[in-house]
Design a protein around this nucleic acid. Structure first.
Length: 604
DNA sequence: CTGGGGAAGGGGCCC
DNA sequence: AGGGCCCCTTCCCCA
């Protein structure tokens, strides 16, 4: 399968006319870009969310990575990127995103013409050299000095004022497709039924969202830009949440627009939104349609000087490959301690390389998520315009299901097969995205950090071995009710002072003793629920935000936990490892076996 | 209508 | 801190 970036590079190459004229499609690259932009505006195959101020944009990792080394390093590890609001405002980022996808500098909503000073700041921050050069030229022509803008030049109110924004969830659908506008419930956020690439957060969500992590200034070396706050501006934000909720999230499934609500009408907010901090914290979905989608021709859009090929050259990225140090960037686990969601590639250089080889890592840009998705970006872009290759009806059902499940009732809205909408079947070995170990051996469900390791592992399998494994699994299932020998044999010298439980190490004992506390130290910033463990709270937060990093490669259904996905995969494999010793009934879930056993043991 | 099974969400907690 | 597992619970489907 040709990877997205590879396909893009081919297009660039073709567009340059290195081939014979009769083998070249002159408008191919332009059409490809047009398709990608249309898909972005519809949220189709968008696999990354970028948060800027109180706005959220959706885009394609491939495109971002091809546009900027900085983005390339970010999207490699994250599906949720938080940009430094001192460096780029949402308005400016909208322009930049449009630029990336169109090669044209389109006027923003407010100013009559782009503010090149702020654009230059943002372009430098985001490492978009072509755009920065364009801005510099424009500034030079207009006689305005550049380099004095910085954070103060963004034309935004001070943070204190920005934070006081009314905590009404706002969403906007500026006339995309059917022209409807709507505010989605916070629960609907990441499912983002949206054809939308932009989401608006409530005011105080700013705090929370920034708490997800903020990028550090990538390049202090961007002389004269002045906006690179080294630490002060971000200080305290991490403490608001201190979470990485975006971890490992593969791309969001293709989605359809949210309900046609009126964004400014508070009546459309649910009761819970009115009455809980949720209304101020959880980001709903909205969209920002492209100018093309709006049907309007932007007033004098400014092409990147040098025509489309130049822009595609930009897409290819400087040098075509990220710097080695970037590709060597350490595992997220390492650097996320400093910057929960995103960090500067410059910072990452300091982290010792670990994990896949550079080649793997670069390849991993496409492979970190189910293969079909990323490869699909470009592949689908070349398909019929604007038509996803999946049944729309099913998409809508999926959307309904997702919004229902995230609602108060927690209803799932159907069986697992109801979510069987998006078939992302990788070729060759059927690798699946499973958390950190993204390359999973289907027969034994073991995960590996690289395709090489998986392939090496797969070769060790023999039919005989698989048979033994199956028998072993059955034996394990049989032993479920009894404590394992290992459990009983290991010394557990650390005893809880409150109850009789014992532990192998003091840390676990300490963790356990917290369960006896009357106060729970970890509150949810959205609903206020208290937890004894930070991890539980983080997981809980994911459910608020609807972040489901673990996607089923078979049906596209997504889960908040790896274990759930593992469990779910048995639906497809037909494996029922849990057997009732009384009646021989087999179950895919241990919990269902347990409830089944209750039926046997209950008096009735 | 009811009970059982399948599938999934959320919280607790140990490793 | 994150993964994994257990438990409780809910919802849906079907006989």
């Amino acid at each position: 399968m040709v990877s997205g970036p590879l396909a893009l590079r081919w297009c660039v190459w073709a567009g340059r006319g290195d081939m014979g004229p009769d083998m070249e499609l002159p408008s191919h690259s332009k059409q490809l870009l047009l398709q990608l932009n249309q898909q972005r505006t519809k949220g189709f195959l968008c696999d990354v969310i970028i948060m800027v101020e109180n706005s959220i944009f959706r885009a394609h990792k491939n495109v971002l990575a091809a546009s900027s080394i900085y983005f390339k390093s970010l999207v490699l590890h994250d599906n949720l990127i938080n940009l430094d609001t001192d460096m780029v405002s949402s308005t400016v980022f909208q322009q930049i995103l449009d630029f990336i996808y169109t090669g044209k500098l389109l006027p923003s909503d407010q100013p009559a013409e782009p503010n090149f000073s702020t654009l230059l700041t943002a372009a430098s921050y985001l490492q978009l050299p072509e755009l920065a050069a364009l801005c510099r030229r424009k500034l030079k022509r207009s006689g305005k000095p550049f380099g004095s803008g910085g954070a103060g030049g963004l034309g935004r109110p001070p943070r204190s004022q920005r934070l006081s924004t009314a905590s009404v969830i706002q969403a906007r659908y500026p006339g995309l497709m059917d022209g409807r506008k709507g505010a989605l419930t916070p629960q609907e956020l990441p499912q983002a039924k949206g054809s939308d690439d932009e989401l608006f957060l409530g005011g105080s969500s700013q705090e929370s969202v920034h708490g997800l992590g903020r990028p550090v200034c990538p390049a202090s070396g961007e002389a004269g830009l002045g906006g690179c706050s080294t630490n002060g501006s971000s200080g305290g934000y991490e403490q608001e949440l201190g979470l990485d909720l975006s971890k490992k999230s593969p791309p969001l499934p293709p989605t359809t627009p949210g309900p046609p609500h009126t964004p400014d009408d508070p009546a459309h907010l649910s009761d819970s939104q009115h009455g809980s901090p949720l209304s101020a914290s959880a980001p709903p979905v909205a969209n920002s349609a492209s100018y093309a989608e709006l049907g309007g021709t932007p007033s004098e859009p400014m092409d990147l000087e040098g025509a489309e090929d130049n822009h595609l050259s930009l897409l290819e990225g400087p040098g075509g490959q990220p710097q080695k140090s970037l590709r060597h960037s350490a595992r997220k686990k390492e650097w996320a301690k400093k910057e929960p969601v995103v960090a500067s590639p410059f910072e990452r250089r300091e982290v010792a390389p670990k994990g896949p080889s550079p080649g793997e890592e670069a390849e991993g840009l496409g492979d970190r998520v189910p293969n079909g998705i990323l490869a699909g970006n470009v592949a689908a872009a070349t398909g019929p315009y604007g038509e996803p290759p999946y049944p729309c009806k099913e998409e809508e059902e999926n959307g309904k299901e997702a919004s229902e499940e995230s609602g108060q009732s927690g209803s799932e809205g159907g069986s697992g097969h109801a979510g069987a909408h998006y078939l992302y079947r990788p070729e060759g070995y059927e690798t699946v995205s499973y958390g950190d170990n993204l390359y999973v051996c289907i027969p034994c469900a073991k995960g590996f950090p690289s395709s090489e390791q998986l392939n090496a592992h797969v070769e060790t399998h023999t039919e005989e071995e698989l048979l033994i494994k199956e028998e072993g699994a059955e034996e394990e299932a049989e032993d479920l009710s009894a404590p394992s020998a290992a459990y009983t044999a290991e010394p557990r010298p650390f005893k809880c002072s409150v109850c009789e439980k014992t532990y192998k190490d003091p840390a676990t004992l300490r963790q356990h003793e917290k369960t006896h506390w009357l106060t729970r130290p970890f509150p949810c910033n959205i609903c206020g629920k208290m937890f004894t463990q930070r991890g539980t709270m983080t997981r809980h937060m994911r459910s608020h935000l609807g972040l489901k990093p673990f996607a089923c490669d078979e049906c596209g259904m997504r889960f908040t936990r790896q274990y759930r996905l593992t469990e779910h995969m048995r639906v497809h494999s037909g494996e029922k490892p849990y057997e009732c010793q009384l009646c021989g009934g087999k179950f895919t879930q241990q919990r269902n076996l347990i409830s089944h056993l209750r039926m046997h043991t209950s008096p009735s």
